[in-house]
Write a protein that binds this DNA or RNA. Structure first.
Lengths: 141, 141
DNA sequence: ATTTATTGTAAGGCATGCCTTACAATTTGT
DNA sequence: ACAAATTGTAAGGCATGCCTTACAATAAAT
């Protein structure tokens, strides 16, 4: 059980590392701790787990980097986050902040089937902006 | 910190107790353990916590019962569950089983704002079944 | 009434995930 | 080159939540 099944905690770390990767930012443990509002010691533990799972490579005092497998795994989480955030913002008209906060938690537990439906429905709304208007009007009544 | 802030674990216990309450079923610890697929010992611990939080009353070998506060608290969780389940089923067209499983997890973390929007959108779809058809057609393309 | 089944729980464990303290190793700045 | 700042981590803790084992208390059945 050293492979597969990554906990939602580790997913959060991985996601944050992935964001740095996308932005070509050098990321060390201490910076990750700051970004996540977590102690350096906790980050240290978490990184060891991610290394054990071969999702990152990491040596003390050097930047963290994702393995190929880590990138794949991280992208999945990252994508889920944005599917949810977009759905909340564009279909349910939730503020970006609140949409993001909720996406952060839900991304770890929601099924792919539901996410796929959310993608479709988000697109449907983008193609039919009049629906939102209609929906808004009925909400008032 | 003996009041307020109930963990998602405890919410699950409370919800199950509430369901028995709604059905006028007598519920003892052992039965709850069976229903939740959890050991009697774990249930024992959890019930002690719920008693400490004044959400249930419970004496060994007697049925569990909700306090007024417990009923309120449980109803909130229970309602959230059904809002999510209905939304997944009726708007996103997810199977009842999958809708239920996802609702079970998400009910503990989603914001009330989003739930309110889901209620509105679910109603909107109930009032406009033609939208689902339209949406389905576009999905195929 | 007494055996049998059920129910409850204390004790001791395991895993996850976070903390602080305190010290070690490495960089950086001058 | 060396003091200062930064970074990393071991050790020891805390909380949640679940487990098994083993025994105690109660309820049910005959």
């Amino acid at each position: 059980m050293t492979e597969k099944n990554i906990s939602s905690g580790l997913e959060d770390y991985l996601e944050e590392i992935y964001i740095a990767y996308l932005n070509n930012n050098i990321l060390k443990g201490a910076e990750l701790a700051r970004k996540m509002n977590i102690s350096r010691a906790s980050v240290s533990e978490a990184l060891a787990k991610l290394v054990a799972k071969k999702l990152i490579t990491y040596n003390s005092y050097e930047p963290i980097s994702l393995t190929k497998q880590g990138i794949e795994e991280a992208k999945k989480v990252y994508d889920k986050h944005h599917i949810l955030k977009n759905f909340f913002e564009n279909v349910l008209e939730i503020s970006p902040d609140e949409a993001g906060e909720n996406a952060c938690k839900i991304e770890h537990i929601i099924s792919q089937n539901i996410l796929n439906k959310m993608i479709s429905l988000t697109k449907f709304y983008e193609n039919h902006p009049e629906l939102i208007q209609k929906y808004k009007e009925e909400q008032i009544k």
